[in-house]
Simulated scan of single mutants.
Amino acid sequence: MSTLPFSPDVYAARLDRARTLTRQAGLDAVVVGPGPDLVYLVGLEGDTIERLTALVIPAEGDPTIIVPRMELAKVRGTAVGPLDIGVIDWVDGDDPHLLVMFAIPGDPVRVGVSDALPALHVVPIGERLGVQLELATPVLREGRMIKDAEEITELRRAGAAIDAVHRRVLGMLRAGRTEREVAEDIAAAIVEEGHERADFVIVGSGPNGADPHHEVSDRVIGDGDIVVVDIGGPVPSGYNSDSTRTYVVGTPDPEVARQIAILERAQQAAVDAVRPGVTASQIDAAARDVLAAEGLADAFLHRTGHGIGVSVHEEPYIAPGNDLPLREGMAFSIEPGIYFGGKWGARIEDIVVVTADGCERLNVTPHGLTPAG
């Protein structure tokens, strides 16, 4: 990012929280490589490469970032600069993994690493420290799962932007066009409505809609087709949208329309169940039970939702067996679907944020089977 989306104070609070969570987890430090966690903590974007970049957060003491000297200017343009975070730079020929040791006070026993850090770096860091590294995911996810006010504002912005695109989809879908042609129009609209880019565009018509992860094809959309449109991307702050609606071109089969109305009820039941203290699995069950009561249990092929923020998919996952209690500030999708192989499929997806007594729905375009074309 050329400019930080949030004030330095926001990043300072996130780092303080990460240090507290590190201490509470009994870890001496966590080592965070490039990826969503580093974006969240200091606003540093980038992919993991063979040259080590790592933010070291000790349980006691100040954080330090280890970075190739050629990346120094980029790193100082993040929260690292205004927060005056310690920097250890290195050049080719140095041993950057050894430098991690100098960023952790004392004689560490337990050190966690972010899940985005590859074995290329994890193994030598563990060797230099003389410890068996462990995943820092329980520490890092705890901070990211509970959105602060600034994050929620950006998720609202993303939700409104993708809703604006769905309103435009009505004029794009019509018989005779291919999925690819529609997807190209949608991708352009995603950018026009305020996103940095289109991260994904799914246009699944007719039998292609029965594949939850279908993207696009050259299939020609026909009259009466059910069309699943699942779209999203990041707004300039890096926070993501993700919303799915199901459309019909022309007149739907009455039985298909009846089943999609049941899906709409299932999605609403899950939204209505959201409140602090309810578990993620209970939200999943709220949708699943409606479908099961109508004989559609086997048509629901995936979990009900996933967390969202600087990543499109992050914790919490709204899935069977996840007994994590919901807390105020969590943000996630609610997206049950029904799929009939070789025939058609449907999915309805909103992003919600847990409030003190329920949830705020960030997507408000019509949820039922929507006529297009």
Rank of each mutant, 00 (worst) to 15 (best):
D323A: 15
A183W: 05
R177Y: 11
E215C: 04
V39K: 08
G250D: 08
P34I: 01
G77K: 05
I262V: 15
V228T: 09
A188P: 01
D225L: 09
G143W: 00
P36S: 12
A29F: 05
G238D: 10
G33P: 02
A59R: 04
G309D: 14
V364M: 09
L301F: 12
I308H: 09
R265E: 15
G86T: 12
E193Q: 14
L117A: 11
E184F: 10
V229C: 06
I202W: 03
V229S: 04
P138G: 10
D92T: 12
R245D: 07
I283S: 00
D218C: 06
R180H: 13
W344T: 03
V227A: 08
A356G: 09
R303V: 04
M172D: 00
V56S: 04
T304S: 13
D115K: 13
D62K: 07
G93V: 07
E255L: 10
Y247H: 05
R19K: 11
D199Q: 05
D47M: 02
A54H: 01
R275G: 03
I348K: 02
Y247A: 00
I85Y: 09
T137G: 12
L83T: 09
V91M: 11
L21E: 11
I146E: 03
D107V: 12
G277L: 13
D37R: 02
S7M: 09
A160D: 13
L170S: 02
A346P: 03
P105W: 14
P63H: 00
I49H: 05
D95V: 06
E255F: 03
L263T: 07
N208Q: 08
V111A: 07
A273I: 06
A116N: 12
V80Y: 14
N363R: 06
G307I: 13
D16R: 11
G224S: 10
S217T: 12
D284Q: 10
V290K: 05
I262Q: 05
T244W: 00
G295I: 13
T246D: 04
V100I: 15
D115E: 15
A297G: 12
I162C: 00
G329R: 08
G130V: 12
E179T: 03
S243D: 11
I186M: 08
P320L: 10
